[in-house]
Nucleic acid binder design. Structure first.
Lengths: 312, 312
DNA sequence: AATAATCGTGCACAATTGGTGCATGATCGA
DNA sequence: TCGATCATGCACCAATTGTGCACGATTATT
């Protein structure tokens, strides 16, 4: 409704390159290029400038985008409150989430919505957290479930998104079956301070959690290997290459030769899973209902985990 | 830049009918009809409903428009401040004003802009005050010079427009040449309380001024005839049908058999001439410059009038 | 130093969007 | 009852807007 070119600009401000913007918005690169040029022409101002082989926002451009964030947020707010007041509801809802969230939270949500709002077309989309945010910007999805980043978004995420905490997903350790602590019911991080670790790549959310957990103990463990997928990490661990952290929500996936153990002791790292919406859109009935449903589902998971806790 | 359909909706909220909206926006009626329907469909809400042979905003629709006013204002603000910060300027400027204003204020302004901003395409448009406001809404013009209405706009003009006072244009009386007071240098309204008057139609701005002026004297003079154009009124007066009020800025236009006299005494009615812009757009360099230029021109007129005063 | 990879843009072409003009049905005023 | 006004549906048409590919430029790689 807000001019598509403005949305494109907003995505570009997060994506950084025309190519990525095109991929996120679903346009072709030349379309994005044209849109942005046309936008500048019709505004009568230079928003971007060449920078090496790419392009980059000018100072004016960044200011403009900042202001645009407010306008878009207010527009979303208007749309949401109008929908809420009118009783009518939108007919389409795009949901995004990273792997485990998509499986454990979004799938039940979609199932719920199918019964409560049969006429709403729900579209699921699995994507990594940062990509979820970009898709949110690009209006490809309306709600995303991601892992909260402490470095909460590079460029003023507060002006663009709103978060709702769903649950704190505690991390377990995964050990080789023949590990010296494999027989213990629980393991503390202190006991593993000297072990070689397998984590995600630098600058990833999980690496940050990992570092923070050990920093609180005054230790800096050795990172022996890096993996992107849990499955890869588990394979490494099964091969005896080290130990690793795995969120409780993530399944071990038939991992042979590895055991999962709860973490005891002072440092109990967890990842915070949040639902994110475009700023202002939270008041929409459909979003509202989705959020509360998600919280219910999350509650269910937490209590499920508690009973597991008693069993284990 | 904001979706055209939203602008159309805004205009409709002021115009009231599809036909008038079409005329104001420059679209055909069927285009407006389609736009508004499409808007409702893509928002998933009913903004308007049939009402007799026309259509009318629903409650939800009115709320929506109210919120939309804020969004549009914020967007204008963003655009203006971005232009101001960037130094660049828009290439087009639409000016609107009612007859005398167009002649005496807008023409000089256009002349000034032609020298200070040669590359800006200025477009003049003469229209009645209410129509000027609608054209402003429809983005056909960017600045209008109108007579301030004390009933300042029907539907929340404050949320849509911003005013800048230019000058107070005093009203003179016009008398038939053979009138008993025609020889006096000045005439007071009290002396004319019993005369038959010729004014504009009920509910017009000038009628309101007329009524207010006499109300302050505790009198309610008799309105014998009504005229829309000054010229018509003057012709009536020349024919001896009554007396009338004429703004100082309005020329007598070779009126035979009539005389113009200053008003003395307690009640000195005047019409307030203001410049109006869309809310938020005032910060744009071009608008800014136009406003100050207008004030300068208005000052010139006032001082010109002062010297006349001394002469007369 | 040379080659490959990536990025943005320009252009011809295609398709969808979006507007016009006219006819129609409905409502209101005289 | 007739005419006027209003909104809308439809066929047609135009202009905007996106695609696909080629190209020049710049950076990374070997």
């Amino acid at each position: 409704m807000i001019d598509a070119r403005l949305i494109t600009l907003r995505v570009f401000s997060s994506a950084g390159t025309i190519a990525r913007t095109a991929e996120l918005t679903g346009y072709s690169p030349s379309a994005v290029s044209t849109q942005l040029r046309e936008l500048q022409r019709s505004l009568g101002m230079k928003l971007m400038t060449k920078d090496g082989r790419g392009i980059r926002l000018t100072v004016a451009g960044r200011h403009f985008v900042t202001g645009l964030d407010d306008v878009v947020a207010q527009w979303e707010l208007l749309k949401a409150s109008a929908l809420a007041a009118d009783g009518q509801a939108q007919s389409h809802l795009g949901l995004g989430g990273f792997s485990t969230a998509a499986a454990q939270l979004l799938a039940p949500l979609a199932a719920t919505l199918r019964t409560t709002r049969p006429h709403v077309k729900v579209q699921l989309m699995e994507a990594h957290p940062q990509r979820c945010l970009d898709l949110l910007l690009a209006e490809r999805i309306d709600l995303a479930v991601i892992v909260a980043a402490q470095t909460s978004g590079s460029s003023g995420a507060g002006a663009r998104f709103e978060q709702t905490v769903l649950l704190d997903d505690q991390l377990d350790v995964v050990l080789p079956a023949e590990h010296r602590l494999a027989m213990n019911k629980t393991v503390s991080l202190e006991e593993l301070a000297e072990d070689p670790w397998i984590t995600e790549s630098e600058q990833s959310v999980y690496r940050a959690l990992f570092v923070a957990a050990f920093a609180s103990l005054g230790a800096t463990p050795r990172v022996a290997h890096e993996a992107v997928e849990w499955e890869t990490m588990i394979a490494f661990i099964a091969a005896g290459l080290g130990v690793g952290l795995l969120p409780r929500l993530a399944t071990l996936g038939g991992g042979e030769n590895v055991v999962r153990r709860r973490i005891s002791g002072a440092a109990k790292p967890s990842r915070r899973i949040v639902a994110v919406t475009r700023k202002g859109s939270r008041g929409s009935p459909l979003i509202q209902e989705s959020l509360t449903a998600l919280q219910t589902i999350a509650q269910g998971i937490i209590s499920q985990r508690l009973t597991d806790e008693l069993d284990g």
